[in-house]
Design a protein around this nucleic acid. Structure first.
Lengths: 127, 127
DNA sequence: GGTAGTGTGTAGTACATAGTACACATGCGA
DNA sequence: TCGCATGTGTACTATGTACTACACACTACC
């Protein structure tokens, strides 16, 4: 395992978030030991341990999604903390790079509520 | 170079687009031979040759941007054909994954003009 | 007919990504 | 006290990404 020691801080943030979420659930249920969770998302316990301690980079999108399900987290947020953007969203952009490029750059500094309001308006057919 | 023969078709589309654009300019100017362009974007000629023939995967974002400048192409489009999304746009999404995730999914099937109209309205301060 | 420029074939490199496998020490309950 | 579960250290692997370096054949020009 290559360490590339320089993203360690970012990895630790992701790992810390996971551990916190897991330990929260672990206090009540015993189904949330590191080993149990590792088994359910289909990775080796040692690997999940290293992820949680930020010793290695965050895992693949697939595993991050599985973790989000297990620990009841927002997948998009977890992916973002891991430094990733979901393949689903990248696909949407790749299909119309000009349009979405333009839109995203215009909205870069818009307030959260403005972005969400637009999303709502689109959903309600107001476009 | 690992070939992973299965994305070859996608690579060829990217390469073909490059070659076409380059040869178009090459008919008039002689500054657009494969070797000259390769030198300007700082890669080996053999490498650019393989890229244009779709024998290897598209190069890094940096090189794709350089090619877009040289050949007067839209970088976002060239990146998209290469199967990539620019780091700039990914950054925008990672900062507010919930908001932009929601927005992009709502706009997935919206017509082009609707997306561009929203971008225009945002630019004009109508939000 | 040399030489300058053209595109391409072959081989190899360094680093990133995404993990596995096994052994070990510690602690907790019955 | 013994067995089982817990988290973790160490070593290793396969594949992907992004290239370089060099040699070769062809053509075009003067």
């Amino acid at each position: 395992m290559r360490r590339t020691t320089g993203n360690r801080r970012a990895w630790a943030e992701f790992g810390g978030l996971l551990r916190e979420a897991r330990e929260l659930r672990g206090t009540e249920s015993r189904e949330f030991s590191l080993r149990r969770v590792a088994q359910r998302i289909d990775v080796e316990p040692a690997y999940l341990s290293k992820i949680e301690r930020g010793e290695v980079a965050p895992p693949s999108e697939e595993k991050i999604r599985a973790l989000a399900r297990e620990l009841d987290q927002d997948p998009d947020v977890l992916l973002a903390v891991a430094g990733k953007v979901s393949e689903e969203l990248r696909e949407i952009i790749r299909r119309r790079p000009r349009e979405f490029g333009e839109l995203l750059r215009q909205l870069r500094n818009a307030p959260d509520h403005a972005i969400l309001r637009i999303a709502r308006q689109v959903r309600d057919g107001k476009w």
